[in-house]
Amino acid sequence: MTIVTRKVSLTVNGKAVSADVEDRTLLVHLLRDNLGLTGTHVGCDTSQCGACTVHIDGRAVKSCTVLVGQADGSNVTTIEGLAGHNELHPMQAAFRDNHGLQCGYCTPGMIMAAVDMVRRHGGKLDEATVRQELEGNICRCTGYHNIVKSVLDAAGRMEMASAAE
């Protein structure tokens, strides 16, 4: 059987990219294998653990459960696209300052989910909401405590930053 590929074009971290891939390709594999953006991880590969979380058109989604065709023409942000030139994104900085990780495997997904969480809730985030909203991200090291602290810390920083604008 001949392998049929097609060209998909999307914007990833602000840059226009395209690749020739099979229709069955998942977004996470396009990012990792074709574009070399290996910060997005494959954990469970069954839509549960959230290690593969990226933003499509601003919304956090599990990139192991998106076909490339579905993302064709979309704006995708991965963990590599969050930081500015010289400084970390406030969420990344808060994870570092609060030791919100141990092995680090789940961290890119946690951070991408958390940025979307702050976008949706703004300054109204409290601990219970953060814990509930982390339902789609699994960490097997930290016990979540410092992750929750990191998200709350970053929510405050992001609120201040947007108020200053």
């Binding site: 839509s47 959230g50 979380t53 919304r59 956090a60 989604v61 599990k62 459960t65 998106v66 989910a113 979307d116 969480m117 949706r120 909203e133 339902e135 789609g136 991200n137």
Partner: peptide, 9 residues
């Protein structure tokens, strides 16, 4: 239903 990422799709 599901989790935030699932609810987005």
């Amino acid at each position: 239903l599901g989790d935030p990422q699932v609810r987005a799709r």
